[in-house]
Simulated scan of single mutants.
Amino acid sequence: MTDNAPHALTDGEWEELAGIEAVREAWGLEPGEGRAMLKECGTYAVRFDFISGSPGYVGPLYLLKGDGDPTCHPLHFIRKDGELVLEEDW
């Protein structure tokens, strides 16, 4: 059965995303400022359990979007070798 519904992030996932330099730069966060700052900025975030037609379950896909310019694409991350990695090809 395919679960393509969006999932709310856990506190740990928020913290992990806030620790990524590309996220800190995009939101103007200082090192150590975490999920609370992202949430206070009106950030939208969601996780999908990404399943492709082949090979099947790929892993989590995270989308992170600020509440600013609606024409800007959200940042999207996948997990590689246990670490969240920004996917720049959109």
Rank of each mutant, 00 (worst) to 15 (best):
S54Q: 06
P70R: 13
D3E: 13
V58Y: 14
L29N: 13
N4V: 04
G82A: 02
A18Y: 05
L29G: 13
F48R: 12
R24I: 09
G42V: 04
R24N: 11
A36I: 08
L64V: 03
R35S: 14
C41N: 01
T71I: 10
L86Y: 14
G53K: 09
L86V: 04
T43F: 11
L84V: 03
L84H: 06
G56S: 12
K80P: 05
D69N: 13
L9V: 02
A45L: 06
E87H: 11
T10G: 11
A26M: 10
L86P: 04
G42A: 05
L38Q: 00
C72T: 14
N4H: 12
F48C: 05
I78K: 05
H7C: 01
L84F: 08
E40P: 06
G19F: 05
L29T: 10
A45P: 01
L86F: 12
W27R: 14
V23A: 04
L9Q: 10
F77C: 03
A5G: 04
L9H: 02
G53S: 13
V85A: 05
I78N: 11
D81Y: 01
L75P: 09
D81C: 08
E33R: 11
L84N: 05
K39R: 08
L86R: 13
D67L: 14
E33F: 00
D11I: 12
Y44K: 11
G59A: 07
P60K: 00
T71G: 07
L17N: 10
G19H: 00
I20W: 08
D11L: 13
C72V: 15
L9D: 05
A5N: 12
I51M: 12
D3Q: 03
R24L: 06
G68T: 12
L38W: 08
I78P: 01
E83P: 01
E16F: 09
W27M: 07
Y57W: 11
D89A: 01
E33S: 07
E30S: 09
R35W: 15
Y62T: 01
C41L: 15
P74K: 06
A5R: 10
E25L: 15
L38Y: 04
M37G: 04
L84Y: 09
K39P: 03
T2N: 15
G68S: 13
E30P: 05
I20M: 11
G66K: 11
K65T: 00
C41R: 13
D67T: 10
C41P: 00
F50E: 14
S52M: 11
K80C: 05
P60N: 07
T43E: 03
E21N: 12
V58N: 08
L9M: 04
G59I: 02
F48P: 06
P70G: 06
L17D: 01
V23G: 10
E30W: 00
F50S: 03
I20L: 13
R79N: 12
K80N: 12
L86I: 03
A45C: 09
C72M: 15
H76F: 15
A45S: 06
G19E: 03
V85Y: 02
D89L: 00
W27Q: 08
L75I: 02
L61T: 06
